[in-house]
């Protein structure tokens, strides 16, 4: 439908209005997400205190103007640690999501397009992985490999690609039987060209939606592993491990637990909400 440049709101139908509102919401959330990313990227410049500097005279100090989130049991500034922890938490999450997105999509597209033996093997593997509780498997794997950020990412990554693979596979199976794929084949095009130019661009939308929805879950998993001591090792700042460290002093210095825990909560909520908005918007565009 042709859209006039000036949108007169009174004349828009309810659905169009809803879409307009949703769009605005998505942009605002997208802005917040971007802000969060930038903040965590330049965290070292923003921290008022060195996140690793201990201060024996100022242990477990309550929040004040000087230390807005207080200090922990070694006298380190909690606010600075939360900020530099954001970097680990958010970036580790993004890296993991991107890697599993790429690997999962590639596997899914290949399985969906060629089918047959390879498809059977790979899909049975994903079935097996999906049948195990994700976090328990990750705990087991991380436990075997020892605690470090890389190992934690590998442990979660073992299962996280499967959801992308399944999604990409089912989309590919739908797309490959559309007439336009046949007509591309009738130009003598190779499979790689079909997959990259004609299949992938048509499923990337829903894959990205899935990826944004996964960010929150992945962030929780990483924080969870760190909390159990299987992820980022102290003294490196990471929200999960900070909660774990502060746990012993919960009654004496609750702020050492609340600050990182609230950060996890807020960050996961923002990413989830953003993912949902993107998802709704994508659905609306399709109708």
């Amino acid at each position: 439908m042709a859209e006039s440049k000036k949108i007169d709101k009174s004349k828009l139908s309810k659905k169009q209005l809803k879409k307009l509102r949703l769009k605005r919401k998505t942009y605002i959330l997208g802005g917040i997400v971007a802000l969060l990313l930038i903040a965590s990227l330049i965290a070292p410049m923003l921290t008022p205190w060195d996140p690793y500097a201990t201060d024996p005279l100022n242990m477990r100090a309550a929040p004040s103007a000087e230390h807005i989130f207080g200090t922990d049991y070694l006298g380190r500034d909690v606010f600075s640690r939360v900020l530099s922890g954001a970097r680990t938490s958010i970036f580790a999450t993004l890296v993991l999501v991107i890697i599993s997105f790429v690997i999962g999509s590639a596997i899914g597209i290949i399985c969906g397009y060629y089918g047959g033996f390879v498809d059977n093997i790979l899909m049975r593997i994903t079935d097996i992985l999906l049948s195990l509780p994700q976090l328990v498997l990750a705990v087991a794997v991380a436990g075997m490999m020892g605690g470090s950020l890389t190992n934690a990412l590998i442990a979660i990554g073992i299962t996280s690609w499967t959801s992308y693979a399944r999604l990409a596979r089912s989309h590919t199976m739908r797309i490959k039987q559309l007439p336009y794929i046949d007509s591309v084949r009738m130009t003598g095009s190779g499979d790689l060209n079909i997959l990259l130019r004609h299949v992938f661009p048509n499923l990337i939308g829903s894959m990205l939606v899935n990826a944004t929805l996964e960010i929150g879950t992945t962030m929780l998993s990483i924080a969870g592993l760190s909390f159990l001591g299987l992820g980022v090792a102290p003294p490196a700042a990471e929200w999960g491990s900070m909660v774990s460290e502060g746990r012993a002093y919960l009654q004496l210095a609750p702020w050492t637990v609340f600050a990182p825990a609230a950060s996890i909560l807020v960050a996961v909520m923002i990413f989830n909400y953003f993912g949902e908005c993107v998802c709704d918007l994508a659905n609306m565009n399709e109708v």
């Binding site: 559309l178 007439p179 336009y180 046949d182 007509s183 009738m186 004609h198 661009p201 048509n202």
Partner: peptide, 12 residues
Amino acid sequence: QVIFQDSEAAFD
């Protein structure tokens, strides 16, 4: 060359 019934689906 083939021309299909569902012409819209015949284009990427």
